[in-house]
Simulated scan of single mutants.
Amino acid sequence: MNIIHTLVIDGLRHNSDSYIFDGMSDIERIVKRFVDFFIALFAIVIFSPLFLICYIAVRREDGGPAIFKQERIGRFGRPFYIYKFRSMRIDAEKDGPALYQHERETRMTQIGKFLRQHHLDELPQLWNVVRGDMAFIGPRPERKFYIDQIMKHDSRYTFLYQIRPGVTSYATLYNGYTDTMEKMLRRLELDLYYLENRSWLFDAKILIKTFINIVFGKKF
């Protein structure tokens, strides 16, 4: 999508009942996209040895695919595939969609536990950022299965479609992983707050806080 097309769409959305105020201006959103693209591309090159180590470790444990992909809903309500290093058994969802259960989770592989604890399973999402499916900071993308359930309680979820989902988010820092509907609705409130108040400074604070949490081993 070229810059002119982006500006047209962003201009139209301010006049639609399907959108709410965005804390970033059109120019700020364009700059954010360019910065995300180049940082993600640089990070893929820098961390390529770590990518290789994770890839080999996952493959060697059970012989299954190292990369896990799953359909999520992104900007403008369009589906895309999110990429991660696989942390669960291949048949983890043989009985249908199921949320991650933290300490009660029994579907994790041994390598997967380590990757998840240190957030290394999220590394392939750098490619999602390069592609434009995601940004570094934004609401975490959800599956349609769970969006449909959230919408029964709060239809404002559609407001989140006006921005790219993120690798990390304001809601993730203060609400953690969502394994109940109560947490999903709380996450939505925080995501909407972020949307209406976001700025480069706000994004920088979220990114720094996320990095600190990862370094000190905080689970979220």
Results as ranks from 00 to 15, higher is better:
I150E: 03
F202V: 12
F220E: 08
I20Q: 10
L115T: 13
I46N: 02
Y161R: 07
A43I: 04
E93L: 11
E182L: 03
T210E: 03
E142D: 06
G132Q: 10
E189I: 08
T106Y: 02
V31R: 06
R143G: 02
G11K: 08
D179E: 07
E142G: 08
F145E: 13
S48F: 15
F68G: 07
G217D: 04
D62A: 12
F159Q: 03
I206W: 02
D179I: 00
V58W: 05
S16Q: 03
S87I: 05
E93V: 09
I163G: 06
L192T: 02
E28W: 00
A171N: 03
Y19G: 14
A66Y: 08
F42S: 14
I46V: 15
K69L: 06
I3N: 03
N213K: 15
F42K: 08
K69G: 00
H14I: 14
Q117L: 10
E71L: 04
F47Y: 12
I30K: 05
M88Q: 10
S18V: 06
R72D: 01
K152G: 01
H118R: 14
Y170W: 12
Y100K: 00
D36F: 01
I90P: 01
R13I: 13
I163L: 06
K69V: 11
G96N: 08
F114R: 07
E189Q: 14
I39E: 02
A40I: 09
F216T: 14
S169A: 11
T178E: 02
D95E: 13
T158I: 15
N175T: 09
G176R: 07
G74V: 04
E105Y: 00
Y19C: 14
D22P: 04
R59A: 09
L41P: 02
A98H: 06
T180R: 07
L192N: 01
P141K: 10
F211Y: 13
H153T: 01
G23A: 01
M24N: 11
F136R: 01
T172F: 00
R187A: 04
I3W: 03
R187K: 15
I30Y: 05
